[in-house]
Protein backbone atom coordinates (compact mmCIF):
# COMPACT_ATOMS: atom_id res chain seq x y z
CA UNK A 1 0.00 0.00 0.00
CA UNK A 2 2.85 2.35 0.94
CA UNK A 3 4.76 1.84 -2.29
CA UNK A 4 1.52 2.24 -4.19
CA UNK A 5 1.01 5.61 -2.54
CA UNK A 6 4.65 6.61 -3.21
CA UNK A 7 4.22 5.78 -6.88
CA UNK A 8 1.58 8.46 -7.23
CA UNK A 9 3.32 11.09 -5.12
CA UNK A 10 6.45 10.60 -7.25
CA UNK A 11 4.46 11.23 -10.39
CA UNK A 12 2.91 14.28 -8.79
CA UNK A 13 6.28 15.78 -7.81
CA UNK A 14 7.77 14.95 -11.19
CA UNK A 15 5.02 16.79 -13.02
CA UNK A 16 5.27 19.67 -10.56
CA UNK A 17 9.04 20.07 -11.11
CA UNK A 18 8.60 20.05 -14.86
CA UNK A 19 5.88 22.68 -14.63
CA UNK A 20 8.11 24.86 -12.41
CA UNK A 21 10.73 24.81 -15.12
CA UNK A 22 8.22 25.56 -17.82
CA UNK A 23 6.91 28.47 -15.79
CA UNK A 24 10.33 30.13 -16.09
CA UNK A 25 10.53 29.71 -19.85
CA UNK A 26 6.89 30.72 -20.21
CA UNK A 27 7.50 33.88 -18.22
CA UNK A 28 10.32 34.92 -20.53
CA UNK A 29 8.24 34.05 -23.55
CA UNK A 30 5.64 36.58 -22.50
CA UNK A 31 8.06 39.30 -21.41
CA UNK A 32 9.85 40.36 -24.58
CA UNK A 33 11.39 43.39 -22.84
CA UNK A 34 13.77 41.01 -21.09
CA UNK A 35 15.39 40.00 -24.39
CA UNK A 36 19.06 40.88 -24.39
CA UNK A 37 20.10 39.55 -27.79
CA UNK A 38 21.85 42.08 -29.97
CA UNK A 39 21.12 41.96 -33.69
CA UNK A 40 24.75 42.21 -34.62
CA UNK A 41 25.21 42.86 -38.33
CA UNK A 42 22.11 45.06 -38.37
CA UNK A 43 23.24 47.27 -35.50
CA UNK A 44 26.70 47.96 -36.89
CA UNK A 45 25.93 51.65 -37.32
CA UNK A 46 25.10 52.18 -33.67
CA UNK A 47 27.41 49.57 -32.14
CA UNK A 48 29.94 51.22 -29.91
CA UNK A 49 32.71 49.38 -28.15
CA UNK A 50 34.01 50.31 -24.71
CA UNK A 51 36.79 52.89 -24.63
CA UNK A 52 39.34 50.40 -23.39
CA UNK A 53 38.37 47.71 -25.89
CA UNK A 54 41.40 45.91 -27.29
CA UNK A 55 40.74 45.58 -30.99
CA UNK A 56 44.17 45.94 -32.53
CA UNK A 57 47.34 47.91 -31.99
CA UNK A 58 47.35 51.19 -33.89
CA UNK A 59 49.64 54.19 -34.15
CA UNK A 60 47.75 57.48 -34.11
CA UNK A 61 48.93 60.15 -36.53
CA UNK A 62 48.11 63.82 -36.26
CA UNK A 63 46.87 66.02 -39.11
CA UNK A 64 50.43 66.64 -40.40
CA UNK A 65 50.98 62.89 -40.80
CA UNK A 66 53.20 62.79 -37.75
CA UNK A 67 53.41 60.09 -35.10
CA UNK A 68 55.25 59.72 -31.81
CA UNK A 69 57.31 56.60 -32.52
CA UNK A 70 61.08 57.00 -32.16
CA UNK A 71 61.90 53.54 -33.42
CA UNK A 72 63.53 52.54 -30.15
CA UNK A 73 62.40 48.91 -30.44
CA UNK A 74 61.29 48.51 -26.81
CA UNK A 75 57.89 47.22 -27.89
CA UNK A 76 59.59 44.60 -30.04
CA UNK A 77 61.48 43.27 -27.01
CA UNK A 78 58.41 43.41 -24.79
CA UNK A 79 56.25 41.38 -27.15
CA UNK A 80 56.17 37.75 -26.02
CA UNK A 81 55.61 36.21 -29.43
CA UNK A 82 57.36 38.38 -31.98
CA UNK A 83 54.27 40.10 -33.33
CA UNK A 84 56.14 43.36 -33.73
CA UNK A 85 59.14 43.96 -35.96
CA UNK A 86 60.90 47.30 -35.99
CA UNK A 87 62.93 48.28 -39.03
CA UNK A 88 65.11 51.28 -38.38
CA UNK A 89 66.64 53.76 -40.77
CA UNK A 90 69.49 56.20 -40.34
CA UNK A 91 69.15 59.79 -41.46
CA UNK A 92 71.72 62.54 -41.58
CA UNK A 93 71.05 65.37 -39.19
CA UNK A 94 71.91 68.98 -40.15
CA UNK A 95 74.72 68.97 -37.55
CA UNK A 96 76.44 66.07 -39.32
CA UNK A 97 75.38 63.36 -36.85
CA UNK A 98 73.38 60.31 -37.83
CA UNK A 99 70.05 59.65 -36.17
CA UNK A 100 67.97 56.49 -35.90
CA UNK A 101 64.38 56.83 -36.97
CA UNK A 102 61.60 54.37 -37.60
CA UNK A 103 61.45 52.96 -41.10
CA UNK A 104 58.71 50.41 -40.71
CA UNK A 105 56.74 49.40 -37.64
CA UNK A 106 55.48 45.98 -38.71
CA UNK A 107 52.63 44.53 -36.70
CA UNK A 108 51.44 40.96 -37.20
CA UNK A 109 47.83 41.03 -36.11
CA UNK A 110 47.48 37.31 -36.80
CA UNK A 111 50.06 36.48 -34.12
CA UNK A 112 49.08 39.09 -31.56
CA UNK A 113 47.64 37.78 -28.31
CA UNK A 114 46.39 41.19 -27.15
CA UNK A 115 48.40 41.10 -23.97
CA UNK A 116 49.07 44.84 -24.05
CA UNK A 117 52.72 44.65 -23.02
CA UNK A 118 53.89 46.63 -26.07
CA UNK A 119 51.54 49.50 -25.34
CA UNK A 120 52.43 49.52 -21.67
CA UNK A 121 56.16 49.51 -22.35
CA UNK A 122 56.31 52.16 -25.07
CA UNK A 123 58.18 55.14 -23.55
CA UNK A 124 56.73 57.75 -25.92
CA UNK A 125 53.14 56.42 -25.96
CA UNK A 126 53.24 56.03 -29.71
CA UNK A 127 50.90 53.05 -29.93
CA UNK A 128 47.42 52.60 -28.48
CA UNK A 129 44.51 50.19 -28.71
CA UNK A 130 42.21 50.60 -31.68
CA UNK A 131 38.51 49.83 -31.61
CA UNK A 132 38.26 47.90 -34.86
CA UNK A 133 37.20 44.30 -34.31
CA UNK A 134 36.05 43.02 -37.68
CA UNK A 135 39.35 41.50 -38.70
CA UNK A 136 38.14 38.69 -40.94
CA UNK A 137 39.98 38.69 -44.28
CA UNK A 138 40.39 36.16 -47.07
CA UNK A 139 44.16 36.31 -47.20
CA UNK A 140 46.29 35.98 -44.12
CA UNK A 141 48.97 38.32 -45.42
CA UNK A 142 46.49 41.18 -45.10
CA UNK A 143 46.81 40.86 -41.34
CA UNK A 144 50.41 42.03 -41.42
CA UNK A 145 50.20 45.78 -41.08
CA UNK A 146 52.66 48.63 -41.21
CA UNK A 147 51.62 50.99 -38.50
CA UNK A 148 53.51 54.13 -39.48
CA UNK A 149 51.86 55.63 -42.52
CA UNK A 150 53.89 56.21 -45.70
CA UNK A 151 55.72 59.51 -45.65
CA UNK A 152 55.02 60.09 -41.99
CA UNK A 153 57.55 61.60 -39.65
CA UNK A 154 58.00 61.98 -35.94
CA UNK A 155 56.46 64.83 -34.00
CA UNK A 156 59.23 67.35 -33.35
CA UNK A 157 59.06 67.60 -29.58
CA UNK A 158 59.55 63.89 -28.87
CA UNK A 159 62.99 63.24 -27.45
CA UNK A 160 64.45 59.84 -26.87
Amino acid sequence: MNSFFKYFTDIFYAVKSLLTGMKVTGRYFFSPWEIVTQQYPENRKTLKMYDRFKGEVIMPHNEHNEHRCTGCGICETACPNGSIEILQAKIDMPDGKKKRIIDKHIYHLDMCTFCGLCIKSCPSEAIVWGQEFEHAVFDRSKLTKILNKPGSSIIKDIVE
Binding site: Y50, R52, F53, K54, T113, G116, K120, W129
Partner: peptide, 23 residues
Amino acid sequence: EESFGSRLLHSYYTPGGLMMDIH
Protein backbone atom coordinates in the same frame (compact mmCIF):
# COMPACT_ATOMS: atom_id res chain seq x y z
CA GLU B 1 35.36 44.43 -21.14
CA GLU B 2 34.71 47.89 -19.82
CA SER B 3 37.59 47.76 -17.36
CA PHE B 4 40.26 45.81 -19.23
CA GLY B 5 39.16 45.65 -22.82
CA SER B 6 38.75 41.93 -23.31
CA ARG B 7 36.22 39.32 -22.42
CA LEU B 8 37.99 36.03 -21.91
CA LEU B 9 41.77 36.37 -21.88
CA HIS B 10 42.53 39.53 -20.02
CA SER B 11 46.19 39.55 -18.95
CA TYR B 12 45.15 42.19 -16.48
CA TYR B 13 47.42 41.47 -13.55
CA THR B 14 51.11 42.18 -13.78
CA PRO B 15 53.75 41.33 -11.20
CA GLY B 16 53.43 44.13 -8.68
CA GLY B 17 49.96 45.34 -9.53
CA LEU B 18 47.55 45.80 -12.37
CA MET B 19 47.87 46.83 -16.00
CA MET B 20 45.65 49.85 -15.45
CA ASP B 21 43.25 51.11 -12.86
CA ILE B 22 39.69 49.84 -12.79
CA HIS B 23 37.09 51.75 -14.74
